[in-house]
Computed example of a mutant assay.
Amino acid sequence: MALAAVATAGAVAFLGPQAIAGQTATPAAVQVSSTVKGPDPTEESVRAQRGPFAVKQVAVAAKAGRGFNKGTIYYPDDTSQGTFGAVAVIPGFLENQSAISWYGPTLASHGFVVITLQPNAVTDFPEPRSDQLLAAVRWVATQSPVKDRVDPARLAVMGHSMGGGGTLIAASKDPSLKAAIPLAPWSLYADFSDVTVPTMIIGADRDAIAPVANHADPMYASLKAKPDEAYLKLKGADHFTTNRYTATTTRFTVSWLKRYVDGDSRYSAFLCPTPQPDGTFVRFQLTCPV
């Protein structure tokens, strides 16, 4: 993929669809993969808390020796679309599954099989969380009650806070992952230059628990020399903003997963080129085109 830099060093770039009220943002030429799911996206649809798919869910009980604790699987109630990509999501320090549970039905309704996790221990640091993410997403694809709905070659991980640090570590451990999205990530170290998985870091400008200057900023700096790595910095947001639905978080999360897990270039329009700032984020940096 030929890539061109969209900003000089130190510049701030706002990248995404050229949104015009009442119109659909679509790329001039669209190449669609065989893993495309759902109708053509619009600016409204990528921001929606509920996408085009009806969703079912199944509880996953804790089981010794499986590598992760209990959780909940959310999946599209549609057997006509073939298999879907799978995403595992884990919360942060002292958080329970409920902290990130909204991602389950939202992402499933946009065409993914999602497992939201209860950590083995709420005090787990990023390293064990990375192992739990990888164990869970692989189990969903190969052993879960919905494994027949999952393409095991299209897996992704997400996590909040220490779960975000765990997400980056998981991407370092398993370069076969199709996407990673750390949410307000926290980690004792910030050099993830070995990560080649398409990764979008989401930080918050008013995060007092994982200040972006110490966490998200240097994490992205260690990634940004590579293609397919992005950084969204939310405006007026704190450490827990990504733990609840917002249209902006949904817009970028859905678009990133669709583009990289599904290989659906229809969603490139929502990542490139530069949009008009809408006041909900102060920075979105990426190398275009994607």
Rank of each mutant, 00 (worst) to 15 (best):
M1R: 07
T246M: 12
A99M: 05
Y103S: 02
L183N: 02
K63I: 09
D148R: 06
V261A: 04
A230N: 06
A5Y: 06
A179C: 02
D151S: 05
G67E: 06
L134N: 03
G111E: 02
T241D: 07
G65L: 14
L117Q: 00
F84S: 01
I90V: 15
A54E: 15
G159V: 12
I201H: 00
K56M: 11
R50Q: 14
K233T: 13
T274V: 06
S34D: 14
A2I: 12
L3F: 13
T123L: 06
V113K: 01
G203F: 05
T142L: 09
A269P: 07
Q81G: 03
I90T: 13
Q49K: 12
A86C: 11
A179W: 00
W186A: 03
S161K: 01
Y103F: 15
V212P: 00
L15I: 10
T83G: 02
P289M: 04
A269I: 06
Y74P: 01
A86G: 04
V290M: 04
T72D: 11
T26H: 02
T246Q: 05
F112A: 11
T123G: 13
N96T: 12
G67R: 06
V12A: 11
P211L: 06
V6R: 07
S34M: 13
S33K: 09
F84L: 11
D217P: 01
V12E: 09
H215K: 05
L117R: 00
A135D: 14
D262P: 08
G163D: 06
P145Y: 03
Y75L: 10
D217F: 15
W102M: 08
E127K: 14
G279T: 14
R259I: 04
Q276T: 15
A156H: 10
L133R: 00
T83E: 07
G38E: 09
M162W: 15
V6F: 03
S268T: 12
R206C: 03
D238P: 01
I100W: 03
L94F: 13
R47F: 03
A108W: 03
V30N: 04
V140T: 09
S109W: 03
A59I: 14
V32Q: 10
T83R: 11
A62E: 15
Q23E: 12
P17E: 12
V254E: 01
A180M: 07
Y75V: 06
